[in-house]
């Protein structure tokens, strides 16, 4: 293993251990020593974040650890960013996100946004209490692959069905993801949604799969292009 790889491994490890100041120090040191900023993010910080996400899924880390890791990750990227050359990084997909109309509970939505952005997915966050028409409007503006909405209270859950139906009608070729405490896999199926995830970590995996499917469908529809 090269010295560089060792440093990036250490970066992954200190992020995994949530040693906040050590992460920043290591990132600054790596930049000063001429490390490629993209490598710092992709080979040092991202594997650390992924490892924390895996621990979260196994209940060895909890929400505070996940949130703190995300904060450290973001602050580290802010340190690295000014040194990055604009190389036109690949867009991993676009999601329009919000809580359904009349629902103001946003912690789950914010977590999903955070984890999506860390995974390289562009998120257009419409905030809370979002009317269905607003989701469609934003989808048209951004050509997002996914419209994602959450509901936290049972009285607002039927709004997710309305949104799913509207997206299918007004924006065919767009995937719908729904979530929130009262939402289940079977309910998502009943509503005709394309994806459901019980937590923010699994939501990324579902979103990546849906983005792949939507892109494949869209490219299949373009004359002369082969499906992916």
């Amino acid at each position: 293993m090269s010295i560089k790889e060792n440093t990036l491994d250490t970066m992954k490890q200190v992020l995994f251990n949530l040693q906040e100041n050590d992460v920043y120090e290591l990132v600054r040191k790596a930049l000063a020593e001429g490390y490629d900023p993209t490598d710092i993010i992709n080979k040092g910080l991202t594997p650390g974040m992924v490892a924390v996400g895996e621990e979260f899924e196994k209940y060895r880390y909890y929400l505070p650890e996940l949130l703190l890791c995300a904060e450290i990750f973001r602050a580290s990227v802010d340190i690295v960013k000014p040194k990055m050359k604009h190389t036109g990084t690949k867009n991993k997909g676009t999601v329009v996100l919000g809580t359904i109309q009349e629902d103001i509970h946003e912690i789950g939505k914010n977590l999903v946004k955070l984890i999506f952005e860390l995974a390289g997915i562009e998120v257009h966050d419409l905030g809370i209490d979002v009317p269905c028409a607003k989701f469609i409007e934003e989808k048209s503006r951004t050509n997002a692959e996914i419209v994602a909405a959450s509901a936290m209270i049972t009285s607002t859950v039927p709004g997710l069905k309305k949104l799913t139906e509207l997206v299918k009608r007004e924006a065919p070729g767009t995937a719908v993801m729904i979530g929130g405490a009262p939402v289940t896999d079977s309910l998502a199926e009943e509503y005709g949604a394309d994806g459901f995830a019980p937590d923010c970590i699994s939501a990324v995996k579902v979103a990546e799969t849906l983005i792949g499917s939507v892109r494949a469908q869209r490219s299949a529809r373009v004359p002369g292009k082969q499906p992916g």
Binding site: P64, E65, L68, E71
Partner: peptide, 11 residues
């Protein structure tokens, strides 16, 4: 805010 509180619990 719940998110900030949770992080404060650790920090």
């Amino acid at each position: 805010g719940i998110e900030k509180l949770l992080v404060d619990c650790l920090r």
